[in-house]
């Protein structure tokens, strides 16, 4: 036992490690009170609730496990006279903590299941639909116009002039409203957004609305939600789509129904 003894017994490092672990634990937890999800502006409260539930459960697990870990490091740092132990198996304890972990997870899984079904459920009858088209590096937003009908589109028609590939022969398309990097929605009205990509994958991300959905070239995806707060927000692209990914940004404005109607009328006029 000659070599390394000097170095190995360095109990100082054990004490320092324990203190460091406690300190890190405290500081890292404290900042969760400062940094939070962006203020919610949609009806997706349940998603946040589950987030906080998990934050609470894992937070407790984090605090308990890291502190206990640090405590053992502190307490069992090497001392020559310390008693050792050969004990290395306890069926009961192992079963207990296996089951305990599983039990903590059950409510998470269960709640997740229910909320997921909610989020992914078909939208209500009165939903109104708009379209968001992603392309490097821009969001094109299309409203169906007063007739409530989108003009049909075909990829073969894509060109720099006909940016969305709208079929000029389809009368339903005449009154469609096309906005670039801008979306306006009325409050408290469920909205469904159809998502299509013209080139690569993108992701439609509304951080304040807890909405995120990939745009998959070749298929049409969609999300629906109900805005609940008037204000100006940002739309982000959350899937790497090339060098301009970071600036594929758009604006979302939530207005009262009256303001929205005026805005829509103006747009239709301009069209």
């Amino acid at each position: 036992m000659a070599e390394n003894i000097q170095a190995t017994r360095d109990a100082k490092h054990g004490m320092a490690l324990a203190v460091t672990l406690w300190a890190i634990m405290l500081v890292s937890v404290a900042f969760f009170f400062k940094y939070d999800l962006p203020e919610l502006a949609s009806d997706r409260q349940s998603q946040d609730t589950l987030y906080y539930v998990i934050l609470g459960l894992t937070g407790v697990a984090y605090i308990v496990i890291q502190s206990l870990f640090a405590f053992y490091i502190w307490k069992y740092r090497h001392r020559d006279d310390a008693e050792g132990s050969y004990w290395h198996e306890s069926h009961k304890m192992e079963v207990a903590w296996t089951i305990a972990t599983a039990v903590i997870l059950v409510p998470i899984v269960f709640a997740g299941l229910v909320i997921w079904d909610d989020v992914k459920a078909a939208p209500p009858e009165d939903v109104f639909t708009i379209e968001a088209v992603g392309a490097q590096f821009q969001w094109d937003i299309r409203y169906p116009g007063p007739d409530g009908q989108f003009g049909s589109w075909r990829p073969e028609l894509y060109s720099l002039e006909n940016y969305l590939g709208i079929d000029p022969d389809d009368a339903a398309g005449n009154d469609d409203i096309h906005l670039i990097n801008q979306m306006v929605l009325p409050i408290d009205q469920p909205v469904r957004i159809l998502l299509r990509s013209k080139d690569v994958q993108h992701a439609f991300f509304l951080p304040h609305f807890r909405v995120k959905q990939d745009l998959m070239p070749g298929i049409m995806t969609s999300v629906w939600f109900t805005p609940t707060k008037i204000g100006e927000y940002e739309i982000a692209c959350a899937e790497l789509c090339g060098l301009g990914h970071y600036r594929m940004r758009a604006f979302l404005s939530i207005r009262s129904q009256a303001d929205y109607d005026t805005w829509l009328a103006e747009q239709s006029q301009a069209n």
């Binding site: 017994r9 360095d10 053992y72």
Partner: peptide
């Protein structure tokens, strides 16, 4: 791992 640390004689190499 936690249980291994219990009653250990930790050498901080």
């Amino acid at each position: 791992w936690l249980a291994t640390l219990w009653m250990a004689k930790i050498q901080f190499t």
